[in-house]
Simulated scan of single mutants.
Amino acid sequence: MPPRLSFHPPLLNTASPWATTEAHLRDLLLCPSTGAVTTRTSLIDGFPHSPDRHRYAFFDPATGKASSSGTFSGPPEDSNTNVTDAKDTADAPLATLNTLGYSPLPLSQYLSIISSLSSAATSTPPKTIIISVTGSPAEISTCHNLIQTFSSSTSCPFPLAMEINLSCPNIPNLPPPAYSSSSLTSYLDALPSNPSIPIGIKIPPYTHAGQFDSLVASLLGTTTTIPSPTSFSISIPASKLSFLTATNTLGSCILLDSLDSSGGYQETLPGEGIGGMAGPPLHPLALGNVATLRRRFDQDPRLVHLEIIGVGGVYNGEGYKRMRHVGARAVGIATALGRRGVEVFTSIEDEIKSAW
């Protein structure tokens, strides 16, 4: 079995604009209500971020109206601190829509940042840092080798894990790999048979049973009907993985701003305005994904070891408890972090009275 992803409390951030910089990661590490920290998804050479093309906006899910503060490009162009929209009431949950890509910082820079954060290793044991990466299967293999080597070096003050983001449409000429059985299989084939650090995959929202069937088939190494459980001595792709992060943003969404003078509308975000949605509107779908995955994994002893980090629309203690109820081993937060900063984690712990 692969190494287990284990940390406490079971609350953390997920890969997002608000986990880009050293300042972000330090704040997250020093927050007593996070058990682990996830970096923004990086590539070996960094992502060519364009502040004119890659932006995000907060919006009111009840009205569909974008926040009055406009759109943001994220670090490094915007402030390195977490974004809080003071013009919106703090009690109203906001969603996000984004056309962002991955982090402009390369993987090597994140390894350097982690090394420099030794003074933030204040908990015992030190918090786990999940390094989120993406790229081609060959690049993922290289990422793993770099992270694994760094993890065993004296300059690494934290336990490390690797998350492979297979849920974004930013890899040229390819759909999100976790939507394609053959593409997902190529990534699983590139992973080591006996990893020394926990490895997981981040998946996009699934909306029908066939997508779950395809995922399970890929994890089991078969494209046919799922066979009866067999001996654990037979290696399957799932034996390389410790966890899944479910789920990422929901694509093909659009926000429209009204034009008072003409009665028409214009896209809130650049270009065609199509982006990935996150926050409260995604919550029921995310809960359904986590519940379905947990049931499917528990039905097969070869998959039962897979832990799930449940992500999507959690912004308070009730959302945290719902995620845990449907089978999430830990709960991840992005949009609410961007809205409220690391205080959101403390607030959730207070609401649940530390009853993790």
Rank of each mutant, 00 (worst) to 15 (best):
M277V: 11
I333S: 01
I199N: 00
I197G: 01
P172V: 07
S6K: 12
N80G: 14
S262M: 06
D213Q: 10
T346F: 03
L117H: 01
P93E: 13
T71S: 07
F297I: 14
T225N: 15
I352E: 02
G70H: 01
L293D: 08
Y102V: 01
E318T: 13
A330K: 04
S231E: 11
N98Q: 09
R329K: 10
I226K: 08
A19N: 08
L269V: 04
N165Q: 04
T122N: 11
N248I: 12
G273N: 02
D213C: 05
P125N: 07
I308P: 10
D60N: 14
D300P: 04
L219F: 00
T38R: 10
I129S: 03
S262C: 07
T128D: 02
S180G: 04
S68K: 10
Y102S: 00
S112T: 10
Y320H: 13
E163L: 15
E77C: 02
E139H: 12
N80W: 15
Q211F: 12
D27N: 13
A95E: 02
T128S: 06
L303N: 06
S112N: 06
T225V: 14
Q148F: 06
A121W: 01
N170C: 05
Q109T: 13
K202W: 02
Q211D: 15
N82W: 15
P61V: 12
D60K: 06
F59A: 07
G288C: 07
A190N: 08
G317V: 09
S258D: 06
L43C: 06
G327V: 04
I130L: 11
L30N: 02
G221T: 06
D189P: 03
W18Q: 01
P192V: 08
L105T: 03
G275D: 09
N80L: 10
S141Y: 02
V216G: 04
S193K: 08
L219T: 04
L166E: 00
A92N: 14
T292R: 14
Y315S: 14
S73L: 08
A336D: 10
D78A: 06
I171V: 13
E351G: 01
S33D: 15
T81M: 09
V344T: 05
N248W: 00
L255I: 03
L174I: 11
T96I: 11
Q211M: 12
C156W: 00
H49Y: 07
L256S: 05
Q148K: 12
G341M: 04
G210N: 14
P229L: 07
S183T: 10
